[in-house]
């Protein structure tokens, strides 16, 4: 296992390097001018030229990319790693913007995942224990809804009912743990539904397999067969789903953030492209990629931990 982890870590900079090149190319050819203002007034050409020079953007993507990489790899007097300034918010550093918003997104994302794991596992197990029962059918119906409804619909409904009509929760913002409940549930519903289906299908499949039938024939109770033997196997697909799900959920959701007014990472993904803010585009993409690679690694380690028979080497 140590060798596997080491090998993954060696690949890591290569993957990031490739992502950097592709992202920079795309960010460069996106139409639009990052220095335009939205309010319609044109910036005098000589002032625009002065700005481009300031950002090392005056001589094409190669000069820009090299100076950017320099700051990223070796850091600057502003610290390490330095993702440069934001073009849309010229007084902000991209590193600060990410450091401000990433914890928010990680927090929201991990609560959403916790909600998803809990609801998903419980309803999946119930469904598998009593297939066809009222409980199973209703959890299936909820799962179907959870997957099919886009989260801005679920979010709006939750907001209208729990914040608007009943006033139990704040309507938005990021002030206290209380503010987290509605967005975490909204964000968690879809993965919860997915997990419930994975668990239910997996369990149903395994419970009818030969070795479980043998165990049952030898007198093992259904509960023990399920919890001690079947669940760990049925859970493996959930784990592999968790890696990418964690990375995507923890790097923010634009829709949820906008709806609940949460200062997370999702907004940066969309706005950086709209503003053609190359520094920020590269910053968020590289952060996201790092997390994606990292979470996949964690999941693989967790695989081995849950079921030591799995050999990852």
């Amino acid at each position: 296992m140590a060798r596997m982890i080491l090998w993954r870590l060696v690949q890591f900079p290569l993957i990031l390097g490739a992502i950097f090149v592709v992202t920079l190319t795309l960010a460069w050819i996106v139409p639009g001018d990052p220095l335009d203002t939205d309010d319609g007034r044109e910036i005098a050409p000589e002032i625009k030229a002065a700005m481009l020079k300031q950002y090392n953007m005056d001589e094409g993507p190669v000069k820009f990319g090299v100076s950017y990489l320099k700051g990223l790899v070796f850091g600057t007097d502003r610290g390490w790693p330095d993702f440069g300034p934001s073009l849309a918010y010229k007084e902000e550093r991209v590193s600060d913007m990410i450091m401000d918003s990433l914890p928010v997104s990680i927090m929201l994302g991990s609560s959403a995942l916790a909600v998803a794991l809990f609801i998903g596992t419980v309803s999946g197990v119930i469904g598998a224990l009593r297939p066809g029962s009222a409980l199973d059918l209703s959890s299936l119906a909820v799962a179907l809804l959870g997957i099919s409804l886009p989260n801005f619909v679920t979010g709006s409904i939750l907001l209208a009912v729990f914040a608007g009509a009943w006033g139990w929760f704040p309507a938005g913002g990021w002030d206290s743990s209380w503010h987290m409940v509605l967005p975490a549930v909204t964000l968690g519903i879809a993965p919860a539904a997915y997990i419930a289906r994975l668990v239910r299908l997996g369990l149903a499949d395994i419970m009818s397999s030969d070795y479980i039938r043998t165990a049952r024939a030898k007198g093992l109770s259904q509960h023990r067969a399920l919890f001690e033997h079947a669940l760990k196997v049925a859970y493996l697909p959930v784990l592999s789903f968790m890696g990418p799900a964690a990375a995507s959920v923890m790097t923010g959701s634009f829709v949820i953030e906008k709806l609940f007014n949460i200062p997370g990472m999702g907004d940066h993904f969309v706005k950086s492209v709209i503003n053609k803010d190359q520094f920020l585009i590269l910053g968020v993409v590289l952060t996201f990629s790092t997390m994606l690679v990292l979470f996949n690694l964690i999941v693989d380690v967790a695989y081995a931990w849950i079921d030591p028979r799995i050999d990852l080497a």
Binding site: A114, L117, F118, T121, E228, L231, I306
Partner: peptide, 16 residues
């Protein structure tokens, strides 16, 4: 095994 699954869920809850 179940314990380990529960442990993972607990870890997720503790991050926030």
């Amino acid at each position: 095994m179940v314990k380990r699954i529960v442990a993972i869920i607990l870890v997720m809850f503790s991050v926030p």
